[in-house]
Computed example of a mutant assay.
Amino acid sequence: MPHFRFRAVEPQTVQTLSKPLIDELQQYMECPREDFTFEYIYTTFFHEGEVSQAYPFVEVLWFDRGQEKQDAVAKVITQQVRGVIGEDVDVAVIFTALNASGYYDNGEHY
């Protein structure tokens, strides 16, 4: 854990970002590299009855690590996504804090 879900980007972008994001974010997450997961979610966005372009949307599911670390992680994600896609793109980063007692690994909660 943490788990990153990417929308409105190409799967190759997620693949490209998966290593440098771990490299830079591991210090904030304080967990082994193998605990990071990256997911590409194919999605279509609509606006006013038409298919529309969307800006990159990154959802982070994690155990809360405080506002200071959350702010730092959001900046790292934004910078790295912009580094691959383009500096002028908006990037949404949404955090969902998970409760350790509700997260199970091999039938045991944290």
Rank of each mutant, 00 (worst) to 15 (best):
Pro2Ile: 01
Pro2Ala: 04
His3Lys: 02
Arg5Cys: 05
Phe6Trp: 08
Phe6Asp: 00
Ala8Glu: 00
Ala8Lys: 00
Val14Lys: 00
Ser18Gln: 09
Ser18Leu: 04
Glu24Arg: 13
Met29Asn: 04
Arg33Leu: 06
Glu34Tyr: 02
Glu34Trp: 02
Thr37Leu: 12
Phe38Asp: 09
Phe38Ile: 06
Glu39Trp: 00
Tyr42Glu: 06
Phe46Ile: 08
Phe46Asp: 06
His47Ala: 12
Gly49Glu: 07
Glu50Arg: 09
Ser52Cys: 06
Gln53His: 14
Gln53Arg: 14
Gln53Pro: 04
Ala54Val: 04
Val58Cys: 12
Val60His: 13
Val60Leu: 15
Leu61Lys: 10
Asp64Val: 07
Gln67Asn: 12
Gln67Arg: 14
Gln67Trp: 12
Glu68Cys: 10
Lys69His: 13
Lys69Ala: 03
Lys69Cys: 01
Lys69Val: 00
Gln70Trp: 00
Asp71Val: 10
Ala72Gly: 09
Val73Ser: 10
Ala74Phe: 09
Val76Asp: 03
Val81Pro: 12
Arg82Ala: 12
Arg82Ile: 13
Gly83Phe: 14
Val84Ile: 15
Val84Gly: 08
Ile85Trp: 06
Gly86Cys: 08
Glu87Cys: 08
Asp88Asn: 10
Asp88Tyr: 11
Ala92Cys: 11
Ala92Trp: 11
Ile94Glu: 05
Phe95Pro: 00
Phe95Val: 01
Ala97Tyr: 06
Leu98Glu: 04
Asn99Tyr: 09
Ala100Arg: 15
Gly102Arg: 06
Tyr104Asp: 03
Gly107Asp: 06
Gly107Asn: 07
His109Cys: 08
